[in-house]
Simulated assay, not measured.
Amino acid sequence: MIHVLIIEDDPMVAEINKTFLMKIQGFSLVGSVNNGVDAMSFLKKKSNNVDLILLDVFMPQMDGIAFLEKVKREYNHIDVIMVTAAQSAKDVKFALSHGVVDYIIKPFTFERMALALNTYKNRIEILNASISIEQSTLDKKIFPKNQSANFCPKGIDKQTLLSVKQIVASQEGMFSIKKLTTQTRISRISLKKYLNYLEEQGVIKGTLQYRAVGRPVLMYQYMFNNKEK
């Protein structure tokens, strides 16, 4: 079992990370903290066995970049996957130079998270085995082509999905299907299919709002909107 620590100061995003993690076999969540200072305190407890950290960048007290440098200096055996909205070349270069095993940019899908975690799990299984490693094994298990991240289920067009995501991300506060229909120029029935898919991936969350008169209205919220992260 791979023991995972989540470091994320946004409770909503932390919950998404936890939900995605628990769907993948072979991983166990040992803790969740919201800044680098608390994370270092967590790691100093001998009872906490951490193999992998899911790490954000923008956090109070000690941000992810400072934490990454410190944890690699003091706990070099712990692996790190960045899960953040930080997209600057400087941050990505720093993370890669400090040995992160993957870099996931928000908002992300379950498929992308699953790809990162399953690739990591395969890597650990292979490297812990006392055998010689062939090139075909490396290509298949440790350095797979990123096919899963680009996969779309039947009936979901990749370019249309990207367009809907961008429009959803631009919404302020709660929004309805009716509002998006005009902006996307997609029929209500087709749009509902894309919104259902985005909700499954944790990108949006749907909530029924009850009114004094009439039927309740299904309203959506973009899950990464409340902070510039």
Results as ranks from 00 to 15, higher is better:
R123W: 09
Y120K: 06
S148T: 09
L115M: 07
I131W: 00
E134M: 10
K145S: 08
K141N: 12
A114W: 00
F110R: 01
E111V: 03
T109Y: 11
L117Y: 03
E111R: 11
N146K: 13
T137I: 15
K106T: 08
L115N: 02
F108R: 05
A129W: 03
K121Q: 11
N128G: 07
N122T: 11
I131Y: 00
F143G: 01
K140V: 03
S132K: 14
M113L: 12
T109F: 09
N128F: 06
Y120W: 08
T137W: 01
K140I: 01
R123D: 06
S148D: 11
T119R: 14
R112Q: 05
T109L: 13
F110P: 00
R112L: 07
N146F: 11
I133D: 02
E111L: 11
N146P: 09
E134K: 14
Y120E: 04
A129Q: 13
D139K: 15
T109I: 04
Q147W: 12
T119Q: 06
T109V: 09
M113A: 01
Q147H: 13
M113D: 03
L127K: 14
I131C: 01
E111G: 02
K121A: 10
L127Q: 08
T137G: 02
K121M: 11
E111K: 13
A129T: 12
P144E: 12
E134R: 13
A116P: 01
E134Y: 10
